[in-house]
Design a protein around this nucleic acid. Structure first.
Length: 638
RNA sequence: GCCAGCGUAGCUCAGUAGGUAGAGCAACUGACUUGUAAUCAGUAGGUCGCAGGUUCGAUUCCUGUCGCUGGCUCCA
């Protein structure tokens, strides 16, 4: 009998007969592993447990406790959902059903789904799970596969197969009456699926192409345990409390109107935060050698033709007419900054020239894409353009990364960095691109930060580094960005006089740190759950009088603080102190000072800190000093 | 723009199987004069997103439209 040497994860070796299934192998290792294993990696390849061993191999098993096992479970759950749909709504066609964060989705066609059908689909999925159907892998030739799916009228599967390389081994996965084209791997049987829930339904274009058929996508979440599913649903529930749209309304930070969709109105509280953010950044920016400018919002069509926006971005631009000429609201600040650069003859001695602007831009985004502060039609970018010599690129990128980390460091939120490289339809020479990409990469490596590479995802005019931050429900949004641009200097014919007395072409670096201040404010609101640190809080201190008799002292105290530059107000309404405190807490004001007889008589205040409760009495001067320090250090609350 | 859902008082939401609507909080008035998360009572507040249609009658049914939400696409 032929035997193979199997090397396990822990290095242990074991001999098994040729033809032993992975399931049998797992069972031999331990009864528990035999029960819990769902998939294996054999010599680096994913394998279903039903597959057999035919060579010496390194084998590693995975259970639902592993991320890998969970992923397989989610994938199988997608098939189960498709099977349930096939049972309930015969004639429905199937596109693709991949795993996503926390779950999976499946795209369907030829059936009009409604959310009311979710529970019926879930029930049928439970039936399929209870039936514990074995999930069987079958290899199939390309022609047989085409034939099979053609006769079933599965147009999407046919297209997928046609697009696969001719030598691909195709596999079908079968569970009971249901068959799907799939690379696998899958669970041994449907009974392994534990906890799932269909969450939502959405339209999605076939292959993400808006020119093609729109499919119906069902989103679902799936977990190894019911408790994890419940935790996830609870998390989503809690995340709703942190939603910047809800908090923005409650805390009166900003508002929207039907008369200006996608264009935020800043209320006094929101503007305080926004101004603080700008003041903070401005100081660091000046230290880093930037000069601030302001360019017009409305500029002649000629400029947009020159910049290329008229050709490439016209659909997103608001256009207006005056004096029989066309004007457009700026969707980006770059062209204006190019004009500033070109305003006079530039010398290499001026470079790098760093021009910054809080530029309010308008972009006519598709209606369906708008959402709160995260996706808007009018927003302010903390934009800057750095004009430099090619050999200065590396240093400048490093400076920008340092600035980003200084600013983001204050907020302590997690973010990730992506480097996007040359796309297919790019402009510029190979050498320039290679040089630019390696300059970005070197700067990232030099900064010692982690990042992932998005090959081919750069802009057509140059590679870029993006910073992405998560919102309350885990969606990530691009905020900071650093982009190299080789095209704009050419389009605007930018030049500088070099050391050699000849004219040279500068390189442009676009950069934004908050990205969109509006979006950043939305993210911050969710990050802090509306409880902004003192330096940002719209109202830093509320002085609450215990009774009307002490309202004079309360007002004096608030006045004292206001005169020293703090945002303070007095609450002297004839209400119980408990009521006033509750309101101050609901408003998430960092400090509530309770004042009554004791405090008035010895010039003190009773300090209550948001999230911490009563902290006892302090002399007003002591409190002032403490608050000043907290603000200066930009300390976080709690 | 496309798919789906939603749109009732400032906010959060009930409600009407077609007969023009109600609560809590907030606001306002009055009483209470209060020590760390809601004092009590009263008053006012809505052409039920907007426009058509069906109907004796529409907030309710139908159509269109605008807005919002979740996605697709795009992007800060």
């Amino acid at each position: 009998m032929l035997e193979h040497q199997i090397t396990l994860k822990d290095g242990q070796q074991i001999a098994v007969e040729s033809g032993t299934t992975l399931q049998q192998l797992a069972m031999r290792l331990s009864a528990r592993l035999g029960r819990e294993a769902v998939v294996a990696k054999v010599n680096g390849h994913w394998m279903d447990l039903q597959r057999t061993v035919h060579e010496d191999a390194v084998v590693e098993f995975f259970t639902l406790a592993d991320a890998e096992g969970l992923e397989v479970m989610r994938h199988s759950a997608a098939h189960v959902m498709a099977q349930a749909v096939a049972r309930l709504f015969p004639g429905t066609k199937f596109a693709i059903g991949p795993v996503i964060e926390n779950g999976f989705y499946y795209d369907f066609a030829d059936h009009d789904f409604s959310p009311e059908e979710f529970s019926a689909i879930e029930t049928e999925m439970q039936n399929i799970i209870r039936e514990n159907l074995p999930i069987i892998r079958e290899e199939i030739s390309r022609s047989d596969a085409l034939e099979f799916f053609r006769t079933r009228g599965d147009r999407f599967k046919v297209e997928i197969i046609e697009d696969l390389p001719a030598d691909t081994t195709l596999t079908l996965y079968r569970q009971g009456e249901f068959v799907d084209l799939c690379r696998g791997p899958h669970l041994p049987s449907t009974g392994y699926i534990k906890a799932f829930k269909i969450m939502s339904l959405a339209g999605a274009y076939w292959r993400g192409d808006s020119q093609r058929e729109m499919l119906t996508r069902l989103y679902a979440v799936a977990f190894a345990k019911k408790s994890q599913l419940e935790d996830h649903l609870k998390f989503l529930e809690e995340a709703k409390q942190r939603d910047h749209r809800k908090l923005g309304k409650e805390l009166e930070l900003f508002m929207f109107s039907e008369d200006a969709p996608g264009m935020p109105f800043y209320l006094p509280n929101g503007l305080v935060i926004r101004n603080e953010l700008e003041i903070f950044e401005r100081r660091l920016q000046v230290e880093a050698g930037y000069q601030e400018v302001r360019t017009p919002t409305l500029m002649n069509q000629r400029l947009w033709v020159e910049s290329g926006h008229w050709d490439h971005y016209k659909e997103n631009m608001y256009v207006s007419e005056a004096d029989d000429e066309l004007y457009a609201l700026k969707p980006m600040n770059c062209p204006g900054h190019m004009l500033i650069y070109r305003n006079k003859l530039r010398s290499y001695r001026e470079l790098p020239l760093r021009i910054a602007e809080y530029g309010h831009v308008h972009r006519h985004e598709l209606r369906g894409t708008l959402g709160g502060m995260m996706r808007v039609r009018a927003f302010t970018q903390d934009d800057a353009h750095i004009f430099c010599q090619p050999n200065q690129i590396g240093r400048e990128i490093e400076n920008v990364l340092e600035l980003v980390s200084k600013i983001y460091g204050v907020f302590e939120f997690p973010y990730h960095i992506e480097l996007s490289t040359r796309p297919e339809n790019s402009m510029g020479s190979d050498e320039l691109w290679t040089e630019a990409e390696s300059a970005l990469q070197a700067a990232l490596d030099g900064a010692g930060v982690e990042y992932r590479i998005n090959p081919g995802d750069g802009a057509f005019y140059g590679p870029k580094i993006d910073f992405h931050i998560r919102d309350a429900i885990g969606r990530t949004w691009q905020c900071a960005t650093v982009q190299l641009d080789f095209q704009l200097p050419v389009r605007f014919d930018l030049e500088y006089v070099g050391e050699d007395g000849k004219m040279h072409r500068p390189v442009v670096i676009h950069r934004a740190i908050f990205g969109s201040i509006d979006r950043f404010l939305g993210i911050l609101t969710e990050h802090f759950s509306g409880a902004f640190p003192a330096w940002l809080a719209p109202v830093q201190v509320r002085v609450a009088s215990v009774a009307e008799e002490f309202s004079g002292y309360a007002q004096e105290t608030a006045e004292f603080l206001s005169q020293r530059g703090f945002r303070a107000e007095a609450d002297v309404r004839p209400e119980k102190i408990g009521y006033k405190i509750r309101e101050a807490q609901v408003r998430k004001i960092p400090y509530t000072l309770v004042v009554g007889e004791k405090e008035r008589d010895n010039g003190s205040v009773s300090v209550r800190r948001y999230g911490k409760g009563d902290m006892g009495p302090l002399q007003l001067s002591e409190f002032t000093e403490m608050l000043a320090q907290e603000i200066a250090e930009k300390k976080l609350l709690v």
